[in-house]
Design a protein around this nucleic acid. Sequence first.
DNA 1: ACTCATATTGCAATCGGTTGCAGTTGTGAA
DNA 2: TTCACAACTGCAACCGATTGCAATATGAGT
Lengths: 334, 334
Amino acid sequence: MAVTLREVAARAGVSRSAVSRTFTDGASVSEKTRKKVEKAAKELGYRPSLIARSLATNRTKLIGLIANNFQNPAFLEIFDLFTSELQRRGFRPLLVNLTNESDPEKSLVLLRQYNVDGVILATSTLPPSFASAFRQADIPIVHTFGKSDASTDVHVVGIDNLRCGEMAAQTLADRGYRSVAVLGGPKTATSTQDRLAGFSQRASELGLKIADIRFAANYTYAAGREAMSGLLTENRVEAVFCGDDLICIGAMDSARGDGLSIPADIGFLGFNDITIASWAAYDLTTIRQPIRDIILSSVELVVAIVDDPGRSAEVRLFPCSIVERSTLRPSRRE
Amino acid sequence: MAVTLREVAARAGVSRSAVSRTFTDGASVSEKTRKKVEKAAKELGYRPSLIARSLATNRTKLIGLIANNFQNPAFLEIFDLFTSELQRRGFRPLLVNLTNESDPEKSLVLLRQYNVDGVILATSTLPPSFASAFRQADIPIVHTFGKSDASTDVHVVGIDNLRCGEMAAQTLADRGYRSVAVLGGPKTATSTQDRLAGFSQRASELGLKIADIRFAANYTYAAGREAMSGLLTENRVEAVFCGDDLICIGAMDSARGDGLSIPADIGFLGFNDITIASWAAYDLTTIRQPIRDIILSSVELVVAIVDDPGRSAEVRLFPCSIVERSTLRPSRRE
DNA sequence: ACTCATATTGCAATCGGTTGCAGTTGTGAA
DNA sequence: TTCACAACTGCAACCGATTGCAATATGAGT
């Protein structure tokens, strides 16, 4: 068994409280006893049990991290940032994988049982109501990549998908495209819907024709490829705006498989700017989502609301930017 | 605050023990009280606190998952499998990201403080001694993708890297290659060393010349690309055996950037068979590591040794197989 | 040296469960 | 009806910490 408070206290010749206090900062202990305790603790190899501490303080330093997209490489970076940033702040991520989970609500029960201090919901494919269930259970939550919803009042960190959709339409129009297709992510994702709305809106303002609209079943290469091949057999378009780089890459391979060359025969505009987008084989022009800012901000926010749960819901939106590479023809202005 | 045992007991008109027992299986409770308790619990929305339970039972149902490779998409699949399999068995993963961590030993302290039931160390770039530190701290560990080491006596699940190296050499020789290069993963990784050893051994038996040996700094596209460009400027080889698909893809793009065509001018043999390897732009011939079997087996093993810590160290090695695609010229036998 | 405010200390209750033990209840066999 | 035995129940101690409170020690000011 591990060394406990009691043993350290005995060896240092002080009370258990004294030991406890030297290990919680801000507590009142004299320099003298602190030294004694630290010496004894070191000799014994003592580390406070976080479990016991959690029980006593009702704080676990655990943050639930819910994700349902373990196919998209974008999430690798996301996990990396989340875990290292949480770690840096002295929290641990308790990962919940909802990818193959039929009943997402179970995660609430689970995270509640572990008494996590807060939850980060990193997905755009679960509805705001899911996030708000946490809030109703009084567990601090931030919905990263989520959509703010006036009625649910949940903290959201992400991008302005509407504006990004507009940006995409503008970009395509600027390059002189007249007839394009949209190949979105999963139809029910709020991000998909908002981007499409923004895109349609601006497209109609600009006289850009949307010849076809498709949705990939999920954020995978295969789904992108599949959706694109359907699109190609039924419609001829000059360019396609994809809801995700991975989907876009699948779509590009599908087009190339049909003998089309990019961007001469068909243009592609991606979304996210994942690492792969910069690979030579694809060199994808895409709309960049500032993942790093979003994640760091999410972590900062969740930690902040742990300390101040009453805080009213905040929406933090970061700006996207276009990354010019070679899958669209050059702008007419150049 | 959450509902506690005490309240349920009061409402059901029984003792706290009775409530506790109806929620721990195998305990002795009459059908009658069980019903009463369940009714009360449901009405109150009671869920046992896992924190409190952990303190009392000294079991947390938490499994530490240590990884240091958040760049390689292979790990996305690995995380997916790990988390969902642990979840399925009623455990939770406590993720530790060692990617940018200078002092890996800290993870031991941390996981010990959380009193995790067991640890899965999923990396081939940390030495067996690191794994054995956990064993010495009496915390059950399995080293996935690790190397067994007689002196440290740690459970290992993975592949026989030596044999895989041999397989690679054999494959290249079979295709009639005479002079090849090896572009390994990080030099200090045990997997890299073993594959190289197996490769060299078999190569010399087969009269296959190893014209150059390089190591990518890490498992990334950029590192592969970088290492390959160095190789190309100094040596002319017919094919290269890469220590990882991602590295290989970087290398391929580097070669293509130099105007080489694959497999006409140069052949590539990858390792792992990640999803991307099957993408049309690469269509990589590679040696497949049965990731799924490895992960499921690791989880099964760690859970088993949680219940029986005395169990002596086991090494589970799964067979690899070659996946034929189009980056090597066809076998002479065909 | 004496007071009094302030800093430290230890006691004991508490967090929310589990579990060994002894006492109680219920059952079937005699 | 009685007895032995098994099944069930509740008591109370415990898991390893934190923390309010009262008691004690310290130190500054006079």
